[in-house]
C-alpha cells in the first residue's frame, strides 16, 4: 500500500469485520511536533489479551479465506519505518483502539492520499455503521459525524448517490477550511502551517 488512507480503510474494515456499529477515525497532523497520528477506535467485539498480543504478527488472522493477515503488521511497519510508533488497545466485548504515530517529515512517510475517498467508500458500503471522522491540522479541525447526518436524513438512506455527492463536496470544503483557504495537493502531503486567508 502506498497511501496512508488505504491503511485507514483497511483498519476500518477490521472494525467492521469485528461487528462495530461505531468507528471513530482521527487523523491529526501537528507540524510543531513533527507528528502525524492516525487513530481508529471501534466498539466491535474486541480481542482477548492473547489475541491482541499476536494481532500485529503477520501469521495471525481469524479470517478463513486466507491464512495470513497483513493489515495490522503493514500499518505497524509503516509507522515504525518513519521513526514513529504503533499501539493497540483492545478489550474483549468492548472494542479496539489502533494508533500509529508517524514522523511527518520522514522521507519514508507515505502520503496521506485520498482520505475523503476512503471515508466516502466506508459510508457508502456500510450504511448502518456510524463514522465519526475528525481531521486536525495544527489548531484547526474538521469533523464529519454520520450520526448527525443520519438525524437530518431520517428515512433517506445515507448511501443514496445524491447523498454521497453531497458528502463529497462537504468533505472537500472541510479540507479547504482546514488549510485556511489552501487546497491540498494531489498527494495529500501538503498540510502546512499556511495561514493565508485567516482573519
Amino acid at each position: 500500500m502506498e497511501e496512508l488512507s488505504l491503511h485507514i480503510l483497511d483498519l476500518a474494515q477490521n472494525s467492521i469485520a469485528a461487528g462495530a456499529d461505531q468507528v471513530k477515525l482521527t487523523v491529526e497532523e501537528q507540524p510543531s511536533n513533527d507528528t502525524l497520528t492516525i487513530t481508529v477506535l471501534d466498539n466491535g467485539c474486541g480481542m482477548s489479551a492473547a489475541q491482541a498480543e499476536q494481532a500485529a504478527d503477520p501469521f495471525f488472522t481469524t479470517r478463513h479465506t486466507r491464512s495470513i493477515g497483513l493489515g495490522l503488521p503493514l500499518f505497524k511497519m509503516a509507522a515504525e519505518l518513519t521513526g514513529g510508533s504503533f499501539s493497540l488497545h483492545s478489550a474483549k466485548g468492548k472494542g479496539t483502539q489502533i494508533r500509529g504515530v508517524f514522523r511527518l517529515s520522514s522521507i519514508d512517510r507515505m502520503p496521506l492520499g485520498d482520505l475523503n475517498g476512503t471515508l466516502l467508500l466506508l459510508i457508502q458500503c456500510n450504511p448502518s455503521t456510524d463514522f465519526i471522522y475528525t481531521r486536525i491540522c495544527g489548531n484547526r479541525n474538521f469533523e464529519l459525524d454520520t450520526r448527525r447526518i443520519r438525524r437530518i436524513l431520517g428515512e433517506v438512506p445515507i448511501n443514496r448517490p445524491e447523498i454521497t455527492v453531497f458528502l463529497r463536496k462537504y468533505l472537500k470544503e472541510g479540507d479547504l477550511e482546514l488549510k485556511g483557504g489552501v487546497y491540498l495537493d494531489e498527494s495529500g502531503r501538503a498540510c502546512s502551517n499556511q495561514r493565508q486567508g485567516e482573519k
Binding site: I149, L153, G154, V156, E162, I163, Y170
Partner: peptide, 14 residues
C-alpha cells in the same frame, strides 16, 4: 455546502 442544504437534498430524494 451546509447541513441545511442536506435537508433540501433529502426532500428531493424523498
Amino acid at each position: 455546502m451546509s447541513l441545511e442544504e442536506l435537508a433540501q437534498i433529502r426532500d428531493k430524494v424523498r
